[in-house]
Amino acid sequence: MNILEVKSLYKTYPNGCQALKDVSFEVAQGEFLVVIGLSGSGKSTLLRCINRIHPASSGQIIFEGQEVTGLKGKELRKLRSQIGMIFQHFNLVPRKSAMVNVLTGVLARVGIMRSVLGLFSKEDQTEAIEKIKIVNLAGKEDVRADNLSGGQQQRVSIARALMQRPKLLLADEPVASLDPATSNSVMQYLEKINKEMGVTVICNLHFLSLVRRYATRVIALKGGEIVFRGTPEQITEEWFKTIYGEDAVEVSVH
């Protein structure tokens, strides 16, 4: 079954920039779909249209059989709560502990008053501790997010996304600001979530070596349009030059 269907999606920013043009694709339950493309090709825009951080200009986005482009207010928040998101710069709440940051993953399920007062239920707290364990940060619960290393911060943000009990995980260049070793470890957590928990993942990536190792399927964007669909093995030298331009040389991360 397809968890997500995107049909001829267009996105034009208010300043007139056409970031997405006629983008259509499906994502089956359990896939690890990787989106590649030069910077500026529209990868981030695509992810942000899926969870409606940016409104699409036209086209359809169907999540679990439901058309979501028109959702508003409570319905929209419910949709977002089912979709976890990981960012290049982690986007943790500064000055708050890892624990509080993970707990923000349940905001959609907690009353406004309770969350403002910081009154998270025992169950939520237990669950948060569990998620922190999954990303191997047990013992770091009370460390302030801004005092953690980059890799640790990204793992906290993965735990935060897990707290949402997501059906779909969007990852926007999750390792672009990490060193190669840390990159692989963070990617392995995403793989674990995908394989063991069955969470569908859509991930923007830069490095083809990572794409080859983790992706089950790949789409490539160029100037806001899909120029390639296939498996990682199908990205040949020629395709590489089409996607990244004639002068591109493949660099790899080991």
């Binding site: 951080i53 977002r80 976890g84 500064p94 905001l107 935060r160 949402q164």
Partner: peptide, 11 residues
């Protein structure tokens, strides 16, 4: 960034 992350959780 943190604001965007909170929006994305459905807050």
């Amino acid at each position: 960034g943190p604001m965007e992350a909170m929006i994305a959780t459905g807050a």
